[in-house]
Design a protein around this nucleic acid. Structure first.
Lengths: 94, 94
DNA sequence: GCCTCTTATCGAAAATTATCGATAAATTCG
DNA sequence: CGAATTTATCGATAATTTTCGATAAGAGGC
């Protein structure tokens, strides 16, 4: 069951997706089929750790990613429910 | 048949949707079932005409809207194909 | 407790975007 | 042609976002 998203959330999600690095991040996590941690993404992108952390925060604030702390690392994974809800919203214009 | 959208276009579309006024614009056009012109939207939003024109440009540059000049007015309508393509892209993460 | 590993936060600078008023451009009407 | 209507563009300013280095915070291992 995917949640109904209000306009504020749609705006936040759209903003979060409106950056090429953040698109690369979600794409990479999808390809991993599972999860990635911050350091993996720092290695992948040519950005500092603090910048990557910032991008991950945008994505988790928009609930596109779920952050799960495990020991000293944080596992980031896709929140498929929110992607589904967002897709549904977009389809209303189609 | 909806087009396949590359990352650059996805980024542009997401950016275009990442603003509450632009979301209001597409929603209003959808409700009209047809099209709206710039002046209609100026009346609807509390923004200057030049700002509305700017927002409409973002949306048409992202190809979410089709601008069709008719006499001295411009008809803005939804580009359903692009919405469909965008929805399809999002669904890949679901 | 101390050292290491991993991520988050802070503060500042640079880059981008939003907003406006003024003005130009395109078109219709008289 | 001149006036009116509608939209686009320009230039400037304000607001937001991105980026970084430095540093803090949390957790595991010795």
């Amino acid at each position: 069951m995917n949640a109904l998203l209000d306009f504020k959330k749609i705006e936040k999600i759209s903003k979060a997706l409106g950056d090429c690095y953040r698109l690369k991040i979600i794409e990479a996590i999808r390809k991993e089929q599972d999860w990635m941690q911050c350091g993996d993404i720092v290695d992948m992108l040519r950005l500092s750790q603090s910048t990557v952390s910032h991008h991950l925060k945008q994505l988790t604030d928009a609930e596109l990613l779920i952050a799960e702390r495990d020991g000293r690392k944080t596992r980031y994974m896709l929140n498929k429910d929110v992607f589904a809800g967002f897709a549904k919203f977009i389809q209303a214009y189609d």
